[in-house]
Nucleic acid binder design. Structure first.
Length: 823
RNA sequence: GGGCGAGUGGCGGAAUGGCAUACGCGCGACACUUAAAAUGUCGUGGCCGCAAGGUCAUGAGGGUUCAAGUCCCUCCUCGCCCACCA
């Protein structure tokens, strides 16, 4: 096989030639149990719903991919895998639009996406490609779901859910605030409302403590940790039980501020709370029940508007505050939520804004029990006087004079001792609704028996394949698309009795909750992954993804993994050692790329016009990975020039000895700096500045006449992670390789080293600062000391004008950095 | 309302407490061209100055330090996430 020599930079020829060879020989193979140290570099798997890869997504893969190439050259056994997360509504809608089945659409999209990934030259081990919609894959998603089921962490129960006519049943995290504050479906922007449905849930609240504790073991940015901590929403407080006047019933409230309890003047119950019916006085029944019914049907928009305009009804009953015997009227109001704490709140209007608003509505007394920094002890009449943060107790018996934090502890101890309450911890995170009334998802491998119970499918019946259907719509109430397939739904339980299959499917998050495990052992048909292989590869060393997944995918997949760890099925408690969130690539107009605005930039077009190398470095150079910025068409033009300039520089390479002169010395110095800086920047994942360093070196080379062959080869290695195609071409050419051998690929070479002495032991220009201003420069070498510097300064003509007749009060000399003088 | 983060040229952005504005874009001048595009060379924070040089600039104001974009305090603005969560 002979390789045609390419003399003029022609990205199409170069890219076609090398990508064929790379992928045919799978040069980016990740080797199980290799003696080399491993690195598992993971980027969130794409969701192939559109025609092809989006430039915004390409940006998120390019930097991690460059990093994985750098590590491979540094001698690591690198896994940089790729797969397709293809269940879910977008694929279903794509299929409908194109008149094909979701199964066929997914197959085609996966092929298109894979081609796009190859076109841009991503160094993926394609033997590990996965697709979450492949029955051989979702067999294990189902199997893992049954582990939750067997351990009581997957349950079928009535849950309030969001419901949209077009998007079906949605979980909290799939519903966002629309432009006018109204709740809409994230998927398609349709209106949603609250409904009760029988749902499968995964009980993530059972894992809150482990998930919180696990954050201490991982290297995540503070912002991600705190987002997850807030999402879990752990609050420590106390459940206080009050007796109800003239009744055997009691009412229990949750509060984090029992210190203010001497200022409690009323109690509020959530309208749907079961206690309401038991404590209500007959003469108030009609009104309260009417109120409860109304608030149940209130849309979220109305409830939010209610935030400015409180409402409620008196029940006729009173709770007795054990601290002071105060009789607190009990109300129902929908600003109290059933799902948090005990569903009952004690009203302290002097020190809680919502309680103050409510007290105003019913003319309830407002009592001050905390004095803030302003010392105000007057009656509280305005919302501005309500304060919650810091202060000292008053009007509170034995708490008076105490700081509120101390008082909080004191009163809790007191109440626990007197049997008035129990310390309690509550969490914001709820059960994770894990079923959807959609067609295109993993069938839940459970059957409903005649007696109304559920039964898991036996392992040998997995995968439970998704049956073909032409009808992807759910009935407006009750029946999921699969429920319409009567023949499929009908089945038998373990005892041969008639039973029905579950008709709901799993959410999009199912397959992606454990996909990183399947990459480790993608073809295993005995287990979701081999334990020894997991032990070798886990945890994921670096995980890159979108900020929008911080509290959804990232947290929930940690939950799956931690659960599997507790079962002894995976070797480590935390799946991801390190995480970085990627920013967003906006359109050239600075707006979020969208079909509607027509500002989408497609990487395929860029690759066609400017080449994959230019596209790659444009995506990495335009800004830091985590930031959001607009696409700029000029950038890729500049990057194309850079690649072309590099290609043309090969004419300057001298194969024999190069004449030693100032020019060759300068290049040597510049080269060593290049290697040092690019190495550091790759380690720090600052690919934008790494590319700047390459530009600086290229600028230096452009100014010189020749470059020696060793420097040139080192330079090609440096650019290889960024511009893999042109690097391969130049590498093959300079080495005169006439036939392809993967061992000779630039991508199997080792990363160059640099010579420290070339950077350090050189004369440098040292700035001289006098009274905080730079007043001169001076040539120094590393052997200079403070003494020699003092002499040089005294001799310097220019500096003398500043120092004349002045005494040097202080002189600070930082080697190689600065001399700072005070006069 | 709560949490997190960010404010540096015309723009994207650099800068372990040590010469602010690297690198790129854009712009200007010049070269090549009949001309334009492309390409190349040089220049490019503001103000004063022919120049040498001086001086002011990292959202605003204070502070620590020989030295602050960087650390501390107060404030302003913007972005993202959460939000009647007790």
């Amino acid at each position: 096989m002979s390789q045609e020599k390419i003399t003029k930079y022609d990205h199409k020829k170069i890219e076609q030639l090398w990508k064929e060879k790379w992928y045919a020989d799978n040069i980016y193979e990740a080797v199980d149990f290799s003696p080399k140290p491993k690195k598992y570099i993971l980027a969130e798997l794409p969701y192939p719903s559109g025609k092809s890869l989006h430039v915004g997504h390409a940006m998120r893969y390019t930097v991690p991919e460059m990093y994985s190439r750098f590590l491979r050259m540094k001698g690591y056994n690198v896994m940089f895998p790729m797969g397709w997360d293809a269940f879910g509504l977008p694929t279903e809608m794509y299929a409908i639009k194109n008149g094909v089945s979701p199964q066929d659409a997914t197959k085609k999209l996966a092929i298109d996406y894979k081609k796009a990934f190859m076109d841009i030259g991503y160094g993926v081990d394609w033997n590990r490609e996965i697709n979450t919609t492949d029955p051989e894959y979702y067999k294990w998603t189902q199997w893992l779901f049954l582990k939750f089921y067997e351990n009581g962490l997957a349950e079928y129960k009535d849950m309030p859910v969001w419901y949209s006519q077009t998007a079906g049943i949605l979980a909290d995290e799939e519903v966002i605030n629309g432009e006018n504050g109204e709740k809409i479906a994230e998927r398609d922007g349709s209106k949603v409302e609250r409904k009760m449905f029988k749902q499968w849930v995964l009980k993530i609240p059972a894992y809150t403590e482990k998930l919180l504790e696990g954050l201490n073991q991982v290297d995540f940015p503070e912002s991600i940790k705190s987002a997850q901590i807030n999402w879990i929403g752990k609050k420590e407080g106390i459940n206080i039980t009050y007796k109800i006047k003239d009744s055997k019933e009691t009412v229990t409230v949750f509060t984090t501020r029992p210190d203010t309890n001497f200022g409690a003047t009323f109690v509020v119950i959530a309208p749907e709370h079961p206690l309401v019916e038991r404590i209500i006085k007959p003469e108030f029944k009609t009104k309260v029940m009417e109120y409860a019914r109304k608030s149940k049907n209130k849309s979220e928009l109305e409830r939010m508007e209610g935030g400015k305009n409180k409402s409620g009804e008196f029940t006729g009953s009173y709770a007795i505050n054990g601290l002071n015997g105060y009789e607190m009227p009990i109300y129902v109001a929908d600003y109290v939520l059933m799902g948090f704490g005990t569903g009952v709140v004690v009203g302290v209007p002097g020190h809680d804004r919502r309680d103050f608003e409510f007290a105003g509505l019913f003319n309830l007394p407002v009592v001050r029990v905390v004095v803030g920094g302003d010392g105000d002890t007057s009656d509280i009449t305005k919302i501005e006087q309500v304060q919650e943060d810091e202060g000292t107790m008053i009007n509170s018996s034995f708490l008076d004079g105490m700081d509120i934090h101390k008082a909080t502890q004191k009163i809790m101890d007191f109440m626990v001792e007197k049997g008035m309450g129990e310390r309690s911890t509550t969490y914001k995170i709820r059960d994770w609704i894990f079923s959807r009334q959609r067609y295109w998802g993993e069938p839940i491998p459970v059957i409903h028996t005649q007696d109304g119970k559920t039964q898991a499918l036996a392992d040998r019946l997995l995968p439970l394949e998704l049956p073909y259907s032409n009808d992807y719509t759910a009935d407006s109430f009750g029946t999921a698309p699969l429920g319409k397939l009567k023949a499929w739904i009908k089945t038998q339980d373990k005892n041969g009795q008639p039973a029905e299959r579950e008709s709901q499917t799993m959410p999009t998050w199912a397959g992606s909750s454990w996909y990183f495990l399947r990459y480790i052992d993608p073809h295993n048909d005995k287990a979701f992954a081999d334990f020894k292989k997991m032990k070798y590869w886990l945890p994921v060393d670096k995980y890159f993804g979108g900020a929008e997944h911080t509290t959804v995918h990232l947290l929930y997949s940690r939950f799956w993994h931690r659960f599997l760890y507790d079962l002894g099925l995976v070797p480590c408690p935390e799946p991801y050692q390190w995480r970085m969130n990627g920013g967003l690539m906006l359109g050239p107009d600075g707006k979020k790329m969208s079909k509607r605005l027509g500002n989408i930039v497609e990487p395929g077009v860029l690759i066609e016009n400017y080449g994959a190398d230019a596209t790659r470095i444009a995506l990495a150079f335009i800004g830091p990975y985590s930031d959001t910025y607009p696409w700029n068409e000029n950038t890729i033009k500049a990057m194309w020039r850079l690649v072309k300039n590099i290609y043309d520089l090969k004419e300057k390479v001298v194969l024999g000895d190069v004449k030693q002169d100032d020019e060759s010395e300068a290049i040597k110095k510049s080269y060593n700096k290049l290697v040092k800086n690019v190495t550091e920047m790759c380690n720090a994942l600052k690919m934008n500045t790494a590319i700047s360093e390459i530009m600086i070196f290229v600028n230096d080379l452009k100014r010189t006449k020749t470059v020696d062959v060793e420097t040139w080869k080192g330079f090609i290695k440096v650019i290889a992670p960024f511009m893999p195609f042109v690097a391969e071409e130049l590498w093959q050419e300079i080495n005169n390789f006439t036939t392809w051998d993967k061992n000779n690929s630039i991508h199997w070479q080792s990363w160059p080293k640099f010579d420290k002495t070339q950077i350090q032991n050189v004369a440098t220009s040292l700035p001289i600062m006098i009274n905080g201003k730079i007043r001169g420069q001076m040539t120094t070498t590393p052997i200079d000391t403070e003494e020699t510097i003092r002499v040089k300064i005294a001799e310097d003509g220019k500096l003398r004008t500043y120092l004349q007749d002045k005494e040097i009060k202080k002189l600070v000399f930082v080697t190689g950095k600065i001399v700072s003088i005070q006069i």
